[in-house]
Simulated assay, not measured.
Amino acid sequence: MGDFTAVLQAGRSVPEGATYLPAEPTTVFWGRLPAAGDAPVLVVAPGTEVVVDTVSHEGILEDQGRDPVAWFAAHGVSREAVLDEAVALAASDHPHDPAVDGPHVVTGPIAVEGAMPGDLVSVTILDTTPRVPYGVISNRHGKGALPGELPAAPGNVSVFTPIEPDASGGWVGALPLVEGGPRVVRFPLAPFLGTIGVAVADEERPHSVPPGAHGGNIDIKLLTEGAVLHLPVQVPGANVYVGDPHFAQGDGEVALTALEASLRVTIRLDLIPREEALRQFGEVLGPMVETDELLVPTGHDRDLDEAMRQCVRAALSLIAARWGMAEHLAYAYLSAATDFRISEVVDIVQGVRAEIRKADFDGVVR
């Protein structure tokens, strides 16, 4: 998980010889996601590891003054601890209209040589290193799980959250029980990328908030170090992008954001040709997570019930393709043995995931 005391400015402490992509105004999208026709900023062969810098949107948004130096200074952060890329992006003429665009900053896109529609591109998270020792949790009006109820007062609520060492030598987030009070609640950290996706086949760039078949803002907290996200390719080269970095999140992400904070990540980009993808996973119509223990198909829809139904269908398809299990028996297995979890409920499109244990199928030969 890395050292939370260091500030990783662009290019600092990048391993010698690494393929590196910084988060400069020319290498990021802000509020929109790549579409057909958008040129990649980097082209790599399958199997390439890439070190990617990401920048959190918190502190640079218009409702925070679009001045991260001033915004973070009000919370006791020195200029040296504010990322130069955040300052440059906020001060640039990079198009961003909060009335029509999302908040998220994503780095990319990265083309994978040979990737074609019908294939899967696999993004393996090899390392997540914090770039700053703090984050922000925000609740904005009309959003979150309780719009109209919270925030209770006019204006947005952005909660600055410092990172502290704990007694075991790890790191935790720290929030006071009341503003300015001495008593503090501490919670564990598990850094991950909220947004990982591929370019859509449409000419219009998607809004950065709602997730979909392209991946995007899926906010699945399982995507920590070692996890893999499989995505169906829509355009030649796939054009992968990453962003919306988090230090921690609870399923649901009810306030609108979780602990948003900038990360440097190392990812590996692999390619699974269509025939092999069908054999391993069946017809993958949307993002699917894989960890050492789990296969995790997903469902996304504006209606949470429909998102759940999509997720169940995706799970049935996966089990049939991978292990040859009859549909009615797979349905019974899912009901008895698989947890269906709500990944988030605040991003216009709702997300549900099924956590299927690989070990349950040990010894099953297809």
Rank of each mutant, 00 (worst) to 15 (best):
residue 303 D to Q: 11
residue 126 L to D: 06
residue 107 T to F: 01
residue 162 P to N: 05
residue 294 L to E: 08
residue 312 V to D: 04
residue 325 M to S: 06
residue 362 D to Y: 10
residue 276 E to Y: 02
residue 302 R to V: 11
residue 187 F to P: 04
residue 168 S to M: 05
residue 300 H to Y: 13
residue 163 I to L: 06
residue 48 T to H: 04
residue 252 G to K: 09
residue 246 H to W: 03
residue 312 V to L: 13
residue 221 K to N: 14
residue 186 R to T: 14
residue 48 T to Y: 01
residue 133 P to A: 11
residue 294 L to K: 10
residue 271 L to W: 05
residue 185 V to W: 04
residue 310 Q to M: 13
residue 174 A to W: 01
residue 237 G to C: 05
residue 129 T to F: 01
residue 212 G to S: 11
residue 204 E to L: 13
residue 301 D to T: 07
residue 138 S to D: 06
residue 157 V to P: 00
residue 284 V to H: 02
residue 104 H to R: 05
residue 261 A to F: 03
residue 130 P to I: 08
residue 13 S to F: 10
residue 100 V to N: 04
residue 358 K to D: 02
residue 279 R to S: 14
residue 123 V to M: 04
residue 265 V to C: 14
residue 15 P to N: 10
residue 14 V to P: 03
residue 163 I to G: 04
residue 195 T to N: 10
residue 145 A to R: 13
residue 142 G to D: 02
residue 310 Q to G: 14
residue 292 D to G: 15
residue 306 E to P: 00
residue 147 P to V: 05
residue 108 G to I: 01
residue 6 A to Y: 03
residue 33 L to G: 08
residue 235 V to I: 03
residue 212 G to N: 10
residue 249 Q to H: 07
residue 67 D to F: 06
residue 263 L to N: 12
residue 124 T to A: 15
residue 64 Q to S: 10
residue 16 E to D: 12
residue 218 I to Q: 09
